[in-house]
Computed example of a mutant assay.
Amino acid sequence: MNHIYKHAPISNGVKLFNEWIILLVLAVVLFLASCSGKAEPMALATAPILPVATVSTGEQETFVDYPAPLQGTTDVEIRPQVAGAIDRIYVNEGQLVSKGQLLFQISELPFRAQLNNAKASLQAVQAAVLNAQLEIDKLTPLVQSKVVSDFQLKTAKTTYQIALANVEQAKASVNSAQINLGYTQIKATSSGYIGRLPKKQGSLVSPSDPEALTQLSDVNQIYAYFSLSETDFINFNAKYSGNSVADRISHLPAVSLVLADQSLYPVKGKIDMINGQFDKTTGAITLRAVFANAKGVLRSGNTGKIRLGLSHDNTILVPQSATVEMQDKIFVFAVGKDNKVNKVAIAIDGKNGTDYLIKDGLKSGDQIVLSGLDKLQDGQLIQPEKKVEKVAQLISKK
């Protein structure tokens, strides 16, 4: 009995230890089970919420801007053709004038005196003709009667021919004097706007003056000159083909003019000239577009940009803000069915404003992350923001 009593406490301790081990194992199993069940919800709860868009293909148009100085269809310097003092100025700076309108009056007194002198000389030589004719008439019967020699008659006839030549010369002098007198009235060679008037009434002017009296610009239509590089011109010809230059020009679409404040001129223009050769210095070829300017909004000397459009079929637009650039490559973060992102390289075919045209790397129906890319890693789980799924469709219709 004593032996039994000595070992009984030991048996009870082993039993308690075993029960404690079983309870510990059950607790660990339950803990692991609870942790595995909450792992996915916890990971999803910590995933960032990011805007996602579904891309789709469509017809897009890209634009390229080319700097273009603007000129009126007529830009001429108004200069005097005779020397003299300005008697009167009939126009103001910036005034719209019509063709043939009187602009300046140069003092005509010396030129009218020259005309009167030329007319007097003409009358004198005309009288000399009459006198030579009288001499011929007098000598003719005398020669026939052999009273005087034939030599005197021939001399009289020669004098008559010289008198006739002097008449023609005097007439030319009269015409020249009349032309010079007409030059004292300086008129508009075309309709347009008057420029600055550096000369004032009383100023002495001459044809050799380095500065013109003013400039006259006909801006009812405006010419915009722009240049294409050799590569751009090859692409231009490939896009707009034709049997000849005139044929190609006739099929060109209308172009837009971007003004200095980046606004669009409300009237479309038409390319009407392609230069015959490339500039050897710049390696570019010049084209000209003409714009109607009935309201006179544009003036000669303005600057702008010609905007050429190029259509792209079945292409995808992606905002530049939805891309990242690494090592000369451009990537987007595509969203898979498991909401994990995958960094995908894309090939760019051009730009449309702040959007990229995608040549390769995406297809219609793919989903991409629109923002928050700086904190994303390849394979990361996200929570797509469903309310922006239609953004790509709106972008593709821009």
Rank of each mutant, 00 (worst) to 15 (best):
V324I: 15
I106P: 00
D272C: 01
V205E: 04
P48R: 02
K398H: 08
V245H: 10
D261Q: 07
T231Q: 13
S364C: 06
Q383P: 02
H251W: 00
S36F: 05
T57A: 15
A120N: 08
N235Q: 15
V25L: 11
M1G: 14
N175F: 10
M42Q: 08
L102P: 04
K146L: 12
T315Y: 01
Q201N: 13
A27R: 03
V324S: 13
V76K: 02
I4E: 14
I234G: 09
Q221V: 07
D328K: 06
I348M: 07
I162L: 15
T214N: 08
I316R: 01
A212Q: 08
A8L: 13
D355W: 00
N175L: 12
S98M: 12
K146I: 05
A322R: 00
F331K: 05
K119G: 02
S173N: 15
L24V: 05
D261N: 15
S263A: 05
G283V: 08
F333M: 13
I106H: 00
V147W: 03
P48E: 09
A83Q: 11
P80E: 03
S311I: 12
V55Q: 02
A27E: 07
V369S: 06
L102C: 06
V341D: 03
E77T: 10
N352W: 01
A392H: 05
D374E: 15
Q380D: 04
K99C: 05
E40H: 03
A260E: 14
A289D: 09
N235F: 01
L264F: 06
N314P: 03
R88L: 11
T189H: 04
L264G: 04
I179W: 06
V388R: 03
F331D: 09
L50E: 05
N235S: 10
N235K: 13
G100F: 09
F104E: 06
S396A: 14
L373Q: 09
V297A: 12
V28M: 10
A27I: 13
G372I: 08
L310V: 05
L115E: 06
I49Y: 03
H312F: 12
S241A: 15
N92D: 12
K280E: 15
D349L: 03
I162V: 11
K171C: 04
G309S: 14
L317D: 00
Y90E: 14
L381A: 11
L115Y: 01
L310Y: 08
L228I: 07
F233C: 09
T140L: 15
D328L: 05
A292H: 03
K200M: 08
E108C: 00
L164W: 02
I395S: 01
V388I: 06
K6P: 01
L376W: 04
N293E: 12
Y265M: 06
A113F: 02
Q178Y: 07
D209T: 07
N235L: 05
E77S: 15
Q277A: 15
T140M: 13
V52G: 02
N237V: 12
F151C: 12
G361D: 10
K119L: 11
P319C: 07
G379C: 09
Q101C: 11
S191D: 11
M326W: 02
K280I: 14
I4S: 14
A47V: 03
